[in-house]
Amino acid sequence: MKISFTKKQYISFAAIIVMLLIWKILALFLDSALILPHPEDTLVTVVKLFTDAGFIAAAGTTILRGITGFIISGMLGMAVGILAGISPGFNAFITPFLVTIRSVPVISLILLALIWFSPNAVPVFIAMLTMFPFICTNVSDGIRSVDPELTEMARLYRVPAGRIISEVYIPAIIPFIISGASSAMGIGWRAIIIGEVLSQPYYGIGTRMQEAQTFLNVDALIAWTLIAVLISYGFEKLIRLGERKIVVWKV
């Protein structure tokens, strides 16, 4: 088990090296920092960005927007998901809403949001709207997957309804919430940054990307992209870590 795991890591590491090599070869071939800078130059830019005065403000604001959107959509998604899981009628009612939200192109949502909201609120709104269907669907699937024999056992033993929810339903849906959160976050970060690019709030990774693009600052654009990837990866790791800490009962 351990050996295969390190082997897998090894292969992933090799894949990253190959990607960097392709990048390097393309950079050598194109031979223009304006089109594609060399990977090592970009790395220097990333390090420079880290020490830049505005870095914390830009990255921090984007992260804060992500977390805000995630918390709002998480709470809404849980509430609506639980209801949809319990009541087939409510599920039938809410499904068209979810399908609509999911099939509307993100860019349409952003363009509309730009008309409706202030630049600071647009990315949060977009994040919320893109994450909500994932969490909601996963929670309702989770509720429906709760073993009816367990809930029957709880009722037969006269366990009050409140405790059946908190000690039977909620723990049963936690794995579903986590996988919903993970896919929601993956989509969410992308949506937030697109939102920032278009709405141009004062702080934000998207704002800085747009600036870099305007001034043909390609290495900064790629550097911000790498930072965005790192943030997304970091949160995914955090969610998986949380899963291991919470879902201890699975062997």
């Binding site: 024999e149 033993y157 000690e167 039977v168």
Partner: peptide, 28 residues
């Protein structure tokens, strides 16, 4: 009368320990 049950399948809550499963049916 109050009832207790022993089912064909133990019907234990997978996320509770042995003690947690027994405490589950005790009144708060």
């Amino acid at each position: 009368k109050l009832f207790s049950y022993i089912f064909q399948d133990p019907r234990l809550l997978p996320w509770k320990t042995v003690r947690g499963n027994i405490e589950f049916v005790l009144s708060r």
